[in-house]
Structure formats: structure tokens, C-alpha cells
């Protein structure tokens, strides 16, 4: 799969001009050496406990809501509306914020919008911005090779091993992965003061992501039960749903589906996941063109997140939106004769 014209990780992941400042580049030998991962059991354990707490809280919310639905009263339309609103907003924080803007720098945005997307993304409970971007850059760099934090394709041949691989890439990895060294992977964000302001207050944003839907539930129904439903549906269940959405990408989007473009990994495109993943399931397109802000490469490839970026661009709010040129598309086609 090694292919001379693929982008190097540095080209694909780093913002232009951040790796070696033009002013006074220190000689390579003098620069302090950095490891890609942090060998620190304590830090690793904290990361893993964090995922377990968030997952159990989300699942607990779902079970509670199911019990209430059958034992107390059917779920209200208000609660489902709140779920939709927060799924979409926090989802945007993840897709066009954490993923396409902070990790891949696929478009430029004003500070207010960057901060808003950072806060919304933090509400997902998938880690602070610096951690999430570092881990995801490590995924792109090592994709489907040793060192990839969540590859489903490193567990060997045969059905049993395939299933084990998918289990690992779905959820097993969340308590096993190495902790990326943020100094190595996310230095652009460490130097980004407004984003570090958001990053530092990560747990506050999680709390806000639970309080806001509860308050909205209270406002819409005027009852404490409405607030509880808001907390469950717009907070905990939404968190659990978005966790699963990301896990579909880390697992299924490297196994099932089509590989339409050449990339250095086994990433795939999946139409059936396009709507709930807000467009992220065009994952082979994404690995082939990691800097692209819009993952849809054909009119029928629905990418809601890319659509939002395009609207924000039309409104003049975001700029320098990276798109895949027709020429690049042609060049990287996996099977040119088919098209």
C-alpha cells in the first residue's frame, strides 16, 4: 500500500509553517527529542478511566430513560427534540470542530466560532481538544499499522480474528490505547491561547452539556420531570449516541464498504452510515484527502457537516475551505476504469 505520491503525515496533518519556524530553526541534532507516546501508567489509567466513566454514564442514562418510558410515561416530543438539537450541535463540535478544523485545519474560522466549536466538541465527553486531536493525528499517521490507536485490521486473518479486531476498534481500544505526546502531535494547539482556554475548562463544558438540555427541558415543559428528560436525552443519551457514532467510524469505516480512492490504509466509504455520522462515514475519501473540509466527492455522497462548512463559507464566516480538485480526484482513484 506504500505509494510514493501519498502525503506524508507532516503534510497531511500539520498546519503550514508550524513545524519549523522560519525565524531561527534550530539544527536538527540540537532539538530536544520527543517520543510519539507518553509512557506513563498513571496518565494512561486516567485516560482510560475517563472513557469508562463517560460510557457508563451514557449507558446509564439510556437505561434510565427506557425505564421511565415504560414505567412512568412515554418519552415526550420535547425530549426527542432536545436530543436532536444537542446531537446535531455537539456533533458539529466534533465533526467540523474537533475533527475537520482542529485536527486537520481544513478551513479557517474566526476565534469566536473556534471557541464555540471547541466548547461544543468538549461536551461530547471524548477528551479535551488537545488530547483528541493528538490521538486522531496519530491514527492518520499510523493508520492500520502498529501504533494506530484503533485499527480493526491488526488481529490476524480468519473470521474470529476479524471479529476480535472489530471489537477492539469499536470499544476495546478505549481502555488500551497509548497516550499520544501532545508536544509531538498537537503543538499548534498548545500555542493557540483561546483554544487552550477552552481546553483547560474541559469538565466545565461537560457539565454545561448536561445542564443546558436539562434547563431547556424545564423551559419547554415547566416541570422537573421535563428537566430530567432533557438531562437524559439531550445530555447522557446524546453523549452515548455520539460515542457510538465515533466508534462506527473507528471500526466499520476501516472494514466494510468501498475503497474508492488510494490511501495508505484500509479506510472505507459507507453510505448507510452517512446520515447518523453527519458525513464522517465517507472515511476513505477522508483518508485519501485528509485536508479536505468537505468529504462528499459525488453529488449523492451526503455530508451534512461539509454542507454546514459550505453554508458558513457562503455567509462569509469561514474561509480558505480546502476542497479536493477534480485533478487530484482523478489521480487518486482506486480503479480509474470504473468511472
Amino acid at each position: 500500500m506504500q505509494d510514493a505520491e501519498t502525503l506524508t503525515p507532516a503534510e497531511a496533518l500539520r498546519a503550514p509553517g508550524i513545524e519549523t519556524p522560519a525565524s531561527a530553526p534550530p539544527a536538527e541534532a540540537e532539538r530536544p527529542k520527543m517520543k510519539r507516546t507518553v509512557e506513563n501508567r498513571q496518565l494512561k489509567r486516567i485516560q482510560h478511566i475517563h472513557t469508562v466513566v463517560m460510557t457508563v454514564a451514557g449507558l446509564g442514562g439510556l437505561i434510565s430513560a427506557i425505564c421511565l418510558h415504560f414505567l412512568v410515561q412515554p418519552v415526550s416530543a420535547a425530549a426527542l427534540g432536545i436530543f436532536g438539537l444537542f446531537f446535531f450541535s455537539v456533533g458539529m463540535g466534533l465533526t467540523i470542530g474537533y475533527h475537520r478544523h482542529f485536527t486537520h485545519r481544513s478551513y479557517k474560522a474566526p476565534t469566536a466560532l473556534r471557541v464555540l466549536l471547541g466548547i461544543l466538541g468538549s461536551m461530547a465527553g471524548q477528551g479535551p481538544i488537545v488530547f483528541w486531536t493528538a490521538l486522531h493525528r496519530m491514527h492518520h499517521e499510523m493508520a492500520d499499522k502498529p501504533g494506530d490507536p484503533h485499527s480493526p485490521n491488526l488481529h490476524g486473518e480468519g473470521l474470529v480474528n476479524k471479529v476480535r479486531g472489530i471489537w477492539h476498534a469499536y470499544i476495546g481500544w478505549t481502555v488500551q490505547h497509548e497516550v499520544p505526546n501532545a508536544n509531538f502531535y498537537s503543538r499548534d494547539l498548545l500555542a493557540d491561547a483561546p483554544i487552550m482556554w477552552v481546553n483547560k475548562r474541559y469538565y466545565l463544558w461537560i457539565a454545561l452539556g448536561l445542564a443546558l438540555p436539562a434547563l431547556l427541558g424545564l423551559a419547554l415543559t415547566g416541570t422537573a420531570y421535563g428537566a430530567l428528560e432533557g438531562l437524559l436525552w439531550g445530555g447522557l443519551i446524546r453523549m452515548f449516541a455520539l460515542h457510538n457514532v465515533i466508534w462506527w467510524i473507528t471500526s466499520f469505516a476501516h472494514v466494510f464498504g468501498s475503497r474508492d480512492y488510494q490511501s495508505r490504509d484500509l479506510s472505507t466509504n459507507n453510505f448507510w452510515l452517512a446520515l447518523p455520522t453527519l458525513g464522517e462515514s465517507w472515511h476513505n475519501n477522508h483518508h485519501a484527502f485528509p485536508r479536505a473540509a468537505i468529504l462528499s466527492l459525488h453529488w449523492w455522497q451526503i455530508d451534512i457537516s461539509g454542507g454546514v462548512v459550505a453554508i458558513l463559507e457562503k455567509l462569509g464566516i469561514v474561509s480558505e475551505v480546502c476542497r479536493v480538485s477534480a485533478e487530484d480526484k482523478q489521480k487518486r482513484q482506486a480503479n480509474p476504469s470504473r468511472h
Binding site: M34, L43, N183, L190, K200
Partner: peptide, 16 residues
């Protein structure tokens, strides 16, 4: 500008 995970990462590199 280092967050806590970055500070721990730096300590690891210093140890090396």
C-alpha cells in the same frame, strides 16, 4: 501553554 498531559509528555522526554 502546556496542558497537563503535555507537561507529563515533556517530563517523559526529559527523563529520556
Amino acid at each position: 501553554g502546556l496542558d497537563s498531559s503535555a507537561a507529563v509528555g515533556m517530563t517523559g522526554d526529559l527523563a529520556d
